[in-house]
Amino acid sequence: MALKLHFLATPVLFAFSTEEIWDMIVANTNNYAEWKRGQSETVGRPWAPVTKPEMKAFIGVTILMGILKFPRLEDYWQESCKYLRTDLAEVFSSVRYQQISRFLHISDRTQDLPRNPGDESQHDRLQKVRPLIDHCGLKFKDLYQVGKHITVDEAMIPFKGKWGIKQYMKDKPHKWEIKAFVLADATNGYITRFFIYTKKSVETQYPEVGLCTQAVLDLVEDFHHKGPVLYTDNYYTSPDLYMTLHGYDIYATGTLRISRKGCPKELAKSQLPTKSRVRRGFYKHLSKGPLTAGVWFDRRYVYFLSTSHLPSLPDFTIATTERRDGARKVDVLCPPP
């Protein structure tokens, strides 16, 4: 027996959008449709300008299709569909949906700059969606104030189309993805700032550093001299980055690749006991100024760097964490997170 799906407006979607952004998308879509149809020698199906309620319904239906996946597009409009019976026919026809999809345009077509294959330094590969990206960036910041604990990481967006900014990630479930650098609240994962990597240099105040360091420094600009604690993984963590952040009163903690420039040689694996001679919970640290580098052995050596956990501070304690040892659970010494 097929289920019947009722459509309800979701406050979450409209919390991140304004009537101005909907008006812009509707106007640019209609403008592009009129221009595109004027370029074609064949008239094709009759076209009526899309309205704002239609555009909102179109976005909602598209989100639905990402959740409920049917074999064919037409299945979403089939009353006798064996998967799920929807009310899409009461919203618009499948033909109308495909028309809107064909002419959907975020940017103003007249403002899009032509691509110059000989010089792409001034070409914005995201120009067709730039107004929406900029709008989301502002809304993400305005709607939620993150707490003291923040984190920087990558967000991978699966994409099957043809686009030069796609990245190949052999170890990911989706091999071809679009990479975004994001700053999020470390307690709940809310993304408050982001930018999409387009494989080309971007305007930054830190052109002298590498991409990873540049991404972190650009994302935390609004947190200078506010004393947050930033968490990073070993892709970003380095002594140089942490010292720069410390100069902005941003404390940091993260896992570390001990081969990074500036890391203490005393903690290199060659200077540590072999796995067969070390017990779980082994811990060693070295400090220099605001930096503390440490190594901890669980099933393998784990390196970390911190400017927020100094051994000289009174709250620096070695705690225990529960681990399995065969069939039983044991307590293993563990440095502060």
Rank of each mutant, 00 (worst) to 15 (best):
F304P: 00
E154A: 02
T187D: 14
T255D: 06
K4P: 00
S101M: 05
T232L: 04
L305N: 03
R115M: 08
A186E: 04
V216F: 04
P239M: 00
I150M: 04
A327M: 09
A57M: 08
I196E: 04
D112S: 03
A268E: 07
K148V: 12
P46S: 11
S276E: 15
V95D: 14
P71E: 08
E322C: 04
F14G: 08
H309P: 07
H135V: 14
L113I: 13
V302M: 11
G60E: 14
M156H: 10
T62Q: 14
R115A: 03
Y144W: 10
F92P: 12
M243P: 02
N234I: 07
D222E: 13
S276L: 10
G262N: 01
M1A: 13
R115N: 03
P228R: 01
F7K: 09
S287A: 13
L132C: 12
V202T: 13
Y144L: 10
N188Q: 10
S201Q: 15
A15G: 06
K200M: 09
A180P: 10
L68P: 02
T237S: 10
A215C: 08
L310I: 10
Y190P: 07
G147S: 13
A2V: 11
R193T: 15
T317Y: 11
I150H: 00
A184D: 05
A268W: 06
L138M: 12
I196H: 00
K172V: 01
G289Y: 05
